[in-house]
Design a protein around this nucleic acid. Structure first.
Lengths: 341, 341
DNA sequence: TTATCGTACTAAAACGTTTGAGAAAAGATT
DNA sequence: AATCTTTTCTCAAACGTTTTAGTACGATAA
């Protein structure tokens, strides 16, 4: 009862040794006799002892706990398909290394209204991973510049380690593939201002240029990420052009579905009449027929890389090299890109 | 530097009062003068003081931290669409009440290999929410029977509070709707053994019976949850029956997509030639045309209810009433159910 | 014999907080 | 003037752990 709690003291009493001896025995210090160690460990087991994380943290200044900060524009939180996969991978890797993960509160209405950094310090996180947030939020800046080890995902801060997916490479592969299928009139609907967007957009222009193609301004439209409505409208706009594209690239798979809806409403068949491609490689992309052509992000790799670097930083604070790790994606041809009529 | 840490002691020095006074002032105890309080709070602010969660937890035996346990058969973890929505809602509600959430380690290979309960006690969680796990895992049993407040989602344990979605009601509504569209030959592919499955299956039979329909055994097939391949195969089996159904109900939306693939492969149009419906109301269901007919689970309500009950239990340990909260879903007609030919 | 060493242990302080019991000073009541 | 209250503050213990310095003691070396 009363939140049963066996402490070192209880074991020390049961074994007739001091508390210090028990602590050392359980932590396998060298200055405790073999026999004593074994006895203590046995008794600890029998009594159902578990260390107290709070006491350990207080004493050692280490929590074995990593903070996760994630807020996206749409406030979709955990339900964000891309992020939830990254986080899942991050979590697995962290757990394998004995770390737990706790969310850094994203609700600004929290009773004590602490900033992200304050919250992280309050919990004593050994490290923090930041993803998909509004990187212009001053609170994020404060956190980045605090003295807790940090890795960021998909956004580069100059004084921190960043894990970023290879947006330029993915876009290059995509354009290259579409080109090889015979398309020359390629439109690109891109997400709103972010470093990810910029990287892809630049790569789009560059790749097109490498193939000797010029991109009419009307072929490049903006629409929010993961907003099928916006993509729907943008698609209609493209279709109403005097010379509509034969292929439309979308900023993400959800948007691509918005596009599909617009196209099928206009009676256009995919890929016979028009070709499309998404980006991200979400589950839904692979569940439809024809399978959506897309660039599958290596979410497993991103999450793992982030966890590995962060844990590395935590364990070797001096070796805090600034680094950008680029994780490649993989083009998934699917069936939504055909040869233009 | 060195993980900057302003403590009560620093404030007490700066203000020329005792540590106790500082603590009481910051916690608004009544035995501290107004003026002193204000001064202390101001100085705390200036010095950038933040409480230390570990020390507080050690002293008060309260962590303001809730543990989340979630492992599903497919080990899809956080990427599980239904659960990630429930968790997101849970998280928001918990945060509004000043709680953080931390995952209970699901990786059995963790270095210290603690059981779920051991882990929860180690972290000192004030409460625990359990969802979608293998409820026959003895470790889950141990956790349920431990003395930490627990709520379970979608599974009833007799001595604990459970939040469950209204599977019987949802299935009834679905059958009723399909019936009203004129269908009489209705097949049901259901998930593998679980209380959710059983509740829906029973409700399916009962609803059919209420409409005076008998269900041929061949119309009821099993296929794992969220397995589009399995649903694909089951669908083909149904189509090869001498008298195939005019409508197929799937255990979840992902499975429904597997079914769609099988049907379109056979050249059947939806809903002209055959009708289908999913369950869950995932994002992908609403992104396709025609929109998938499905029962949208109130994930927001489920998550919130779970958080509210759990926090209630935490704050009033005596009022630990055993309760089952049923959260209703909502039939989303979509466009995949038409009138049978 | 005495100094030196190694092994196995303990004492006690410390981490940062909370809290009940008390103390000092000022005000109110007899 | 003496006593009781009230207000405001401090003392000190406690939460469970880790760790440094030190002790006791038998063995080895001089």
């Amino acid at each position: 009862m009363s939140r049963n709690s066996v402490s070192l003291k209880d074991i020390s009493k049961a074994c007739g040794v001091s508390i210090a001896t028990v602590s050392k025995a359980l932590n396998d210090h060298s200055d405790i006799g073999q026999e004593t160690k074994e006895n203590i460990k046995r008794v600890a087991q029998e009594l159902g002892y578990h260390p107290n994380a709070a006491a350990q943290a207080l004493k050692t200044r280490r929590t074995n706990n990593i903070g996760v900060l994630f807020v996206d524009e749409a406030n979709s939180g955990l339900t964000h398909d891309y992020f939830s996969h990254v986080l899942d991978s991050f979590k697995r890797c962290a757990e394998r290394n004995g770390f737990d993960i706790t969310f850094i509160n994203a609700d600004k209405t929290r009773p004590d209204n602490m900033t992200y950094l304050a919250h992280a310090m309050y919990r004593g996180f050994d490290g923090v991973v930041i993803a998909c947030v509004d990187f212009f939020d001053p609170q994020v800046d404060e956190l980045i510049n605090g003295n807790i080890p940090v890795v960021t995902i998909d956004h580069i801060f100059y004084n921190r380690i960043a894990i970023i997916s290879d947006n330029a490479g993915g876009m290059r592969d995509l354009v290259s593939y579409v080109y090889s299928m015979g398309h020359r009139k390629i439109a690109y609907i891109h997400g709103l201002e972010s470093s990810v967007t910029q990287a892809r957009l630049a790569s789009f222009y560059r790749s097109m240029q490498d193939f000797g193609l010029t991109v009419p301004d009307e072929y490049v439209l903006a629409s929010p990420y993961r907003d099928s409505e916006g993509a729907y409208r943008a698609t209609l706009k493209l279709l109403s052009l005097p010379e509509p594209p034969t292929c439309i690239l979308y900023p993400d798979d959800v948007s691509a579905f918005g596009g599909i809806n617009a196209l099928s409403e206009r009676g256009l068949r995919i890929p016979e009449d028009i070709s499309i491609a998404g980006y991200d490689g979400t589950e839904m992309a692979s569940r439809v027929i024809p399978m959506l052509t897309t660039v599958v992000q290596d979410t497993e790799g991103i999450g793992r890389a982030a966890a590995e670097r962060l844990i590395d930083m935590i364990n070797n604070p001096k070796a805090a090299l600034i680094e950008q790790v680029i994780i490649e994606g993989r083009l998934e041809p699917g069936g939504t890109v055909g040869r233009p009529a």
